[in-house]
């Protein structure tokens, strides 16, 4: 192990953690407000697709970015209407949204461009130019190679994570969110508009999912491929679960899972080709192990006669 390799690994960790952190921090708000949202996956996928598609069609990155936000927000408003307003089952609607996210991009790509696998927009977007050079970091030796030359959304993510943690624990809105999730009756009785709180949380999550999708498709590659999200939504869901719905803890798990993903990418270069496809299970195994480690100390509490449902 030489030092460059480790630095490279850490740099890739930051890269890989960005979408994880974004989806997680938005999802924490939704989870905290008592909405078990498994459509994070679909929302991110739609945003990634919309960013590239509309950017490609209009010839302007800005249009792509805006439409990604709009699509994600519209999707979560639909989710809000169906589940919170009209009381449909959360998991069922989430599943349906995820399936939609798997087939609508494929269908549209086939209809508009004749391929059902990917849409290359590198003529419009140069992924190399998306990396930002931060002058302050240039003189700091280790941090420079880890944190410099990342994308704009990566830097935005750090700010956003801190902002949202403060929003959760230091503001009235945060208290309302937590009360809504813990005891909706109590929240209602003191006059908190719980539906509106849930809607706001879903909107926060829509924005972060859109950022994550844009980071994946527009910033990193300039290409949209089918199933680009690759279970990131579910990975973030488990990060939220591992972190017991607390934003700072969930973010730590998001970074751990990002590290597993980066490790997988690095290891791919060092193992024989035959095994390299097996390395793909690394993030998933990490998550199951993490869930186990988190839940085992709680198992004793659950054994007190009463089985607690999810």
């Amino acid at each position: 192990m030489n030092i460059n390799l480790i630095l490279n690994l850490l740099k890739m960790t930051v890269e890989a953690s960005t979408p994880y952190l974004l989806i997680t921090i938005g999802g924490v708000f939704v989870a905290r407000a008592g909405v078990f949202n498994i459509s994070l996956e679909g929302c991110t996928e739609f945003a990634a697709f919309a960013g590239i598609l509309f950017g490609f069609l209009s010839g302007s990155i800005l249009v792509g970015v805006l439409s990604a936000f709009l699509v994600a927000i519209a999707l979560n408003i639909v989710f809000y209407l169906f589940t919170v307003k009209w009381n449909a089952d959360l998991t069922v609607i989430g599943c349906a949204v995820n399936l939609l996210a798997a087939c609508i991009p494929a269908c549209l790509l086939q209809a508009l461009f004749g391929t059902r696998s990917n849409l290359v927009a590198t003529s419009l977007i140069d992924p190399m130019k998306m990396k930002v050079d931060v002058p302050i970091l240039r003189s700091v030796p280790v941090l420079n190679s880890i944190f410099n030359h990342q994308t704009r959304i990566t830097y935005l993510t750090f700010a956003l994570v801190i902002f949202l943690i403060i929003l959760m624990y230091r503001t009235k809105f945060g208290i309302y969110v937590r009360v809504t999730g813990e005891n909706i009756g109590a929240a209602k009785s003191v006059g908190v508009k719980t539906n509106r709180i849930k809607l706001l949380c879903l909107l926060i999550s829509a924005v972060t999912c859109a950022l994550a999708g844009l980071n994946l498709s527009v910033e990193e590659l300039g290409i949209y491929t089918i199933n680009m999200t690759a279970n990131r939504g579910f990975i973030c869901l488990s990060a939220i679960n591992c972190g017991r719905k607390e934003p700072h803890r969930a973010c730590v798990y998001a970074v751990i899972f990002g590290f597993a993903r980066a490790l997988q990418t690095i290891l791919n270069n060092y193992v024989p080709v035959a095994i390299s496809s097996l390395i793909g299970i690394l993030p998933y195994v990490t998550i199951i192990v993490a869930l186990l480690i988190v839940e085992i100390p709680n198992a004793r509490k659950n054994h007190l006669r009463i089985f607690r449902g999810a």
Binding site: S238, N241, L278, I281
Partner: peptide
């Protein structure tokens, strides 16, 4: 995992789906 440790089954089953696909492949 669900019965003894109360781990959310949606997350674990979906992770295991990916693992099954990758390992069999």
């Amino acid at each position: 995992l669900k019965a003894r440790l109360n781990v959310n089954e949606v997350v674990t089953t979906i992770m295991l789906n990916s693992i099954a696909t990758i390992v069999t492949g």
